[in-house]
């Protein structure tokens, strides 16, 4: 029924930090999530991009120091392609993703609470159909637990360096365009919406 107390506490602390950051990053809001898909507000890409750049440096440093191991999910093409497109459609319609919808619940948003109920139903639907679906997703286009460096036969640090340079260029362009950029337009729009 329960995991070990140590794991439960670790999960809880991680969750509190994660939820706090998501709320402070403004991604527990319908306008910000849907605004990203409409290219009106770039908050989601900025947060995810920075997290990927910083995290990739840190995680690969940990792995190199033999302090952690990678946890790669298998690239099962049929399931990933179909599931991820379904996910994107659902995310645009709901206006929150699985992490940000619980953060939006913490903020008190009622539509997110309805969305969470829907997610329990969606997860239960998958569980009910698992016996039929799993053999398909596990056999159609399973590339296994592969990473970009493994597939290309390159060093992970090449990819990490690409991410860092790409992120730095994107941040530089954003800071030079600040004032007239879509970013501040998005912030203004939100400020207007709150009024």
């Amino acid at each position: 029924m329960f995991d070990s107390p140590e794991k439960l506490v670790l999960g809880l602390v991680t969750g509190i930090l994660f939820g706090f950051l998501l709320q402070k990053g403004q991604v527990a809001k319908f306008e910000v999530i849907v605004g990203q898909f409409l290219f009106r507000d770039w908050t989601v890409v900025k947060i995810m991009g920075t997290a990927v750049v910083v995290g990739s440096v840190g995680v690969h440093a940990l792995v190199m120091a033999d302090m952690a191991s990678l946890h790669i999910r298998p690239a099962q093409l049929a399931g990933v392609l179909f599931g991820a497109v379904c996910f994107g459609i659902g995310m645009a319609v709901l206006g929150y993703c699985p992490g940000t919808s619980v953060a939006a619940c913490g903020e008190g948003r009622r539509d997110a609470m309805i969305g969470v109920l829907g997610m329990f139903a969606g997860a239960a639907l998958y569980v009910a159909l698992y016996e039929q679906i799993a053999p398909l997703t596990q056999s159609l286009g399973d590339w296994g637990k592969v990473t970009l460096p493994e597939v290309t036969g390159t060093s992970p640090w090449l990819w990490v360096a690409l991410l860092v340079v790409g992120g730095a260029v994107a941040m530089f362009l954003d800071s030079t365009r600040r004032g007239t950029s879509i970013v501040s337009a998005g912030a203004r729009q939100r400020a207007n919406a709150h009024r």
Binding site: C86, F87, G88, G115, G118, A121, G122, A123
Partner: peptide
């Protein structure tokens, strides 16, 4: 949206 998203995430 919630149903579609959670089903898609598991898939």
């Amino acid at each position: 949206g919630g149903i579609l998203m959670a089903f898609g995430a598991r898939l």
